[in-house]
Each structure stands twice: as C-alpha cells, then as structure tokens.
Design a protein around this nucleic acid. Structure first.
Lengths: 206, 206
DNA sequence: ATTCTATGAGACGATTTGACTCAAAGACGA
DNA sequence: TCGTCTTTGAGTCAAATCGTCTCATAGAAT
C-alpha cells in the first residue's frame, strides 16, 4: 500500500471526490463520475473503495480538527481566536459541505455517526481542559458541562455559516463569549475583575 | 387537481417518500422505491413529480414553522416556551431529517436555498417583532439584530439535537436565554427588575 | 533484467431510468 | 342511472448505469 501508483490513484480519486462533493453534493459521488473526474479507470475506484459511502467517509476523515487545542489563560481572547479560526474554516465551502454531509449522513449511517461522535469527543475533551484551566485561574465560578459549553459556542457559528449562509463577524463572536458570563464565568476577562453573585440556577424549571 | 384519486395518490406518495427519507436518507428517494413503498404505479410518481428533487422539495415545504409567533411580554417565559417547542419538534427524527436535508440541499440546489431563505425570513420577522415588543416593554436595552438573536438562540438547539444527538433540557434553554442578558437585555425577567449598566460593546474588536 | 502489482480498457448481465402505450377503474356531469 | 372524461396501474422499450469480471500493459521493486 505504499506503491506510488496506488497513492497516486488514491490521491487523484480523493481530490476528484472532494471536488464533486463540493460542486454537486453527495449524490454525485458515483464510481463512474469520480473515475472520469479523477482521470482513472472505473475499476480502480472500485478497487480502492468498493462502496461509495466509504469514499465519502474517507473524505470526512481527512478534515482535521485543530480547534480549541492548548488552552491559554485568560480564556476570553483564547476563545475568541479559536472561534475565529473555526468560523473561517467553516466559511470555506468545502469544509461546510463536508460538515453538513457528516451531520446528515450520521442520521442513517451508523459508521458516519461513529465518525461524528469521535469528532465531538475530541471537542469535548479540549473544552473540558480549557474549562479546567480557566477554573484553576479563577476565571470560572462553577463547573460547566463542556457539552453545553460547546453547543452554546459552536452551535451559533454553525448556524450562522451553514444555515443563515452568512459571515461571522468579530462582534458576533464577542456576543457569544459575553453571553457565557451570565451563567458560568465569574469574570470572563480575568481573575482581577470582581463580579457580583452568579445568577445561575435562578431560573424556574417547569 | 381536486380529483380524489389524484389526492389519494399524492398523499400516499408523500407519505412513502417521507418514510423513505426518514429510514434511509435522501438517496433512497428514487421513483422506483417511492412507487413500491406507496403502493402506486411507477408512472404515477413520474406524473406527479417528474424529477425526484421536486418530491424532496415538496416534502420540505410541508413542514411548517409555528415558532416564535405572537410574542408575549415578559419575553423570558415566552422565549422559553417557544424554544421548548422548537427543541421538541427537532427531537422528532423526521423533522430533524428534513431540516438537515434542507440545510445540506441548499448548498447545491438554488431552489432549496430559496426555500431555506424563506424559512429564515419568517423566523427573522417574528423575532424582530418579539424584540420590538420587548423593547416597548422596556425589557431590552439596545437594538439587537434579529439575525444574531436567532443564531444565538436556535443555533445551540440545532447543534445539540442534530450534531450532538442529545436532548434539550429546560436547564439548557435557561442557559441560552440567560446568556442573552449579558449583551442585549436590560432585565430579561421583566421591567420591574433593575440591572446595572450593560457591558455591551465593552469587548475589544481586533 | 526479472518478477510482481496496480492500472486502464473493455466485456458482460443485471438493474435502473425515463418515456411511452393501453385497458380498466373511478370521478363527475347530465 | 348513464355516458364521458380523467387518472391509474401494468407493461414495453431503449438508453444509461452498476457491479463484477478478464486481460494486456505500464510501472515498481528486487
């Protein structure tokens, strides 16, 4: 599997599949179209990926997740920079296409669901580390569920880019981070800024 | 087009397509499979929907958007109930499937994108009305972009349900609404509760 | 130079697609 | 109730596609 011919074919096929997915969506990922787009024989595509879904899965595996690594204190500017990078990546049409395909594919293909869960697990671990660091620096008042944390931070960005088809301004990111202050953070700007008592859990639970 | 036979066929086909979309995804929506699932002739499906994409589009048109209608003051419990309904609807697998299909299809099909934009436009108008009412009742301090408003409220719910495949607790909704207080709302619980000065726009803009 | 492997081209039956015909059942007006 | 009109279901048919196969050839490894 280190044969230069094999890696050449594999790369050409992946590039062709990526281009097709971007231009025409997952429905266009047939062996025939991928083969002619890649300039390889149809049988070659079958050899590498007997089922088209596996090709799609490999496409999604290739996108890595360099976000929320190595948390830094204070947490506010770090979060801002990480969310900025995430938003910029989602603005690339190919990334958005793969992300939405992953989300949708997980509804029916258990393998895709596993793939998606792996991505989320990484995200959760990193955000948990970030929250631990922030707590150690007395930036955070109470323990926050990293799953809620990621949903509240990442959800609006996905929504803005993928659903509203809009761009993510720095002001928008600021709003997101500022919103955290209400229920989770003692002083999001650092431990030197005192804040009155948290209103967390004050709201009624019907 | 009011012929009972035609509406019978049309309903059976739509139901079959809906079931297929839910069980196996948009890729399963071929004339053949829809016809046999609906128990109608294959030519009948062609007669009603010459292209399978139109069938998919009609499926998505059928889901209505009864959310954020008729805003009430105070805005907090109203928002909570509306987000609760939205989350419960998204928890129905069929709704989530159609929603994700709509999101993904909009990336490549301009007609689907138009459909999506129409949904968003409705949402924006309703949230704008809600914000206007809240401002009139002195619940809101500054003018808020309803587009940002919906992204920050709805984004996390979509993310929680469709990406994290989790359920939306009332506590989660509370966190969302409480987060608004930091940058937009004078007192989210009503005009009788005074709040200190808003920290909006205090954050640096790199 | 020789051996091994991946490739590309093509053949093949099976399946799907889209468009057509046609008899029969059902809906509607008189 | 009867006659007319429309929709339907079943079927045919060519074209395209799919999945699998064979085989000669180019390229890689030794």
């Amino acid at each position: 599997m280190t044969d230069p011919r094999a890696v050449r074919s594999r790369d050409a096929i992946l590039a062709a599949a990526s281009s097709l997915l971007l231009d025409e969506g997952p429905g266009a990922l047939t062996h025939q179209r991928v083969a002619e787009q890649a300039g390889v024989g149809r049988a070659t595509v079958y050899r590498h990926w007997p089922r088209p879904e596996q090709l799609l899965l490999d496409l999604m595996t290739d996108v890595d997740m360099p976000y929320f690594q190595e948390p830094e204190a204070p947490i506010h500017p770090w979060l801002h920079s990480q969310l900025r990078e995430l938003a910029d990546a989602m603005a690339v049409p190919h990334i958005a296409a793969v992300t939405l395909t992953l989300m949708q594919g997980a509804l029916w293909d258990p393998n895709v669901a596993t793939q998606r869960d792996a991505c989320l697990e990484i995200l959760n671990e990193r955000l948990e580390a970030a929250l631990a660091l922030a707590a150690a620096n007395r930036e955070i008042d109470i323990s926050v569920d990293p799953i809620d944390f990621s949903a509240i931070l990442v959800g609006p960005i996905i929504y803005r880019v993928a659903i509203q088809a809009g761009s993510v301004s720095d002001h928008f990111i600021d709003q997101l981070i500022d919103g955290l202050g209400r229920w989770a953070v003692r002083s999001i700007r650092g431990p030197d800024q005192p804040e009155r008592s948290s209103r967390h859990h004050e709201s009624p639970r019907p």
